[in-house]
């Protein structure tokens, strides 16, 4: 039993950065993201028997974060900070130009619809394939591809200065 606890502590240390990033961009609220990550690990610890193997842990925990977030979203939640008002402290110190580029991208990510942002986060933070994202979201792989296409297209449009993020589909 002692080794289970030690292994779980290791899991917390290993997966917290990605889980927090995922929760942060899902909720766009640092305090809520911390709560989501903490609550998800607590739930995972209580349901440790459901964890089949260590490799599946990340997918399993991301699923818990998604469900917790969806559950809380249906309830009354404290007011969210506007993403543009949230100052993120970078550990490395990029140049002023890089910082401006990063901030523009963060603003753009914060402005795309949740339905496009979520699959993008699952792909880039979760490291999931389109099929795995489809399974997580309960939609077809084709729909995931469409959402990923639109997410990136909207980001590009917003970075170009198109405030509506209009997307031109390829046919």
């Amino acid at each position: 039993m002692e080794s289970k606890r030690a292994a779980f502590d290791q899991l917390v240390r290993r997966l917290s950065p990605d889980l927090y990033r995922f929760a942060y961009w899902l909720s766009r609220d640092p305090a809520l993201a911390q709560d989501l990550v903490q609550e998800s690990f607590l739930r995972a610890w209580r349901s440790l028997a459901d964890l089949r193997d260590d490799k599946a842990a990340k997918a399993w925990l991301i699923t818990i974060v998604r469900r917790e977030h969806a559950r809380l979203f249906e309830r009354k939640v404290p007011p969210l900070d506007d993403i543009a008002d949230v100052v993120i402290e970078d550990q490395d110190t990029p140049s002023a130009f890089e910082m401006q580029e990063i901030q523009e991208m963060r603003d753009a990510i914060g402005r795309i619809d949740h339905k496009y942002r979520e699959p993008l986060l699952l792909q880039l933070v979760g490291g999931f394939s389109c099929d795995e994202i489809a399974e997580q979201l309960g939609i077809s792989a084709a729909a995931v591809m469409t959402q990923l296409f639109r997410a990136r297209a909207k980001l590009k449009a917003l970075l170009r200065g198109d405030s509506q993020g209009k997307v031109h589909e390829l046919h």
Binding site: Y20, R21, Y24, W25, I88, E89, D90, Q91, P94, E98, E101, I102, M105, R106, I109, L120, L121, L124, V125, L155
Partner: peptide
């Protein structure tokens, strides 16, 4: 650029 933006500490 997206990776850099998503990398919140």
């Amino acid at each position: 650029r997206i990776d850099s933006a998503l990398a919140v500490p």
